[in-house]
């Protein structure tokens, strides 16, 4: 073998090792958490409230709380995000406006999650007086999800061929009718993918709800948007840092982590699947 062939071989093996490391990371995390968490997951764990100062029972209130927070965030961020994407793709604003908005969207996406938490604490919890509540937490998480939904919607709408916009306009439809009846329906699967990915992201976030929504223990289920809630990710954190019975709590934390991991990963896989199917129909 020539020298340069050997170098190529070594180089390619190194790249392969890098790729393999990703699989190793993902496999390792899933394996270790599943190995110790799976045995604790059963029907009672999913449907009961915690008992005996967090050493027994289930995590049902935390599941419900995470569901409310996530839905609230999406209800807030989806219309706003789609509207923003509509403006950017359909109303072709002037260059500097596009640049300004793109920079602010990218920067919003890069803001550390704990900073969102402080913003939510100052504005929603205190200034608007919503208190530590589902509402405050949802709004905070919604701002975090906004850039994700904007970019997914923008991508989906850009992929709609210009020719069918022309077809609609040529039939006498106004621009808004064209957007509402042609562009949005055609972009819907792409927007949906973005929404599902944001659900996964929002459901797993902890730092933004630390000071805006989450509580270690709440008796019963939340009954209004102004209630404090338990949330799955915060529950894991609290079990590991605030408890008095480390052994039992770690066992429950394993199960909760596995549950959260399972939820978030299946949501992402669903989104990836929908997107792959969608790409096929576009190319056909």
């Amino acid at each position: 073998m020539k020298r340069r062939d050997i170098i190529q071989k070594i180089g390619f093996s190194a790249l392969f090792a890098c790729m393999a490391a990703n699989i190793f990371f993902l496999g390792g995390i899933i394996f270790f958490i599943a190995a110790r968490g799976l045995s604790s997951i059963n029907w009672a764990f999913l449907t009961q409230a915690p008992r005996d100062s967090m050493t027994a029972g289930g995590v049902a209130p935390a599941i419900v709380g995470t569901f409310y927070l996530t839905m609230g965030a999406i209800i807030f961020a989806l219309p706003l995000g789609v509207a923003c994407a509509i403006y950017l793709t359909e109303y072709s604003p002037k260059g500097w406006i596009v640049n300004l908005l793109r920079i602010s969207i990218n920067n919003l996406a890069g803001v550390p999650s704990v900073v969102f938490g402080l913003f939510g604490l100052t504005v929603f919890v205190k200034y608007f007086g919503f208190g530590v509540s589902i509402l405050s937490g949802s709004l905070t998480l919604g701002i975090l999800a906004l850039p994700l939904i904007i970019s997914a919607s923008q991508e989906a709408m850009t992929a709609v061929p210009q020719s069918i916009r022309e077809a609609s306009l040529a039939l006498g439809a106004t621009q808004w009718e064209t957007i509402r009846r042609v562009v949005l329906p055609a972009a819907l699967p792409g927007i949906l993918t973005g929404v599902i990915l944001s659900v996964g992201r929002v459901a797993g976030e902890t730092a933004p709800i630390l000071f805006t929504a989450a509580a270690f223990y709440v008796k019963g289920y939340p009954h209004s948007p102004f209630s404090e809630v338990m949330a799955l990710p915060y529950h894991i954190y609290a079990l590991m840092t605030e408890g008095t019975h480390p052994v039992e709590q770690t066992r429950i934390a394993y199960a909760s982590s596995l549950l959260l991991l399972g939820l978030v990963l299946s949501v992402s896989m669903l989104a990836i699947y929908i997107r792959a199917r969608q790409r096929k129909t576009y190319n056909a």
């Binding site: 020719s163 069918i164 022309e166 077809a167 040529a170 039939l171 006498g172 439809a173 329906p185 055609a186």
Partner: peptide, 25 residues
């Protein structure tokens, strides 16, 4: 009305395609 270089039906059913112009009107 206008008919374009490349056929540009909407990603909808045949019926919805033809009905579209009536509905927006």
């Amino acid at each position: 009305g206008m008919v374009f270089q490349k056929p540009n039906p909407f990603p909808k059913t045949v019926f919805e395609n033809v009905a579209y112009g009536l509905e927006v009107n």
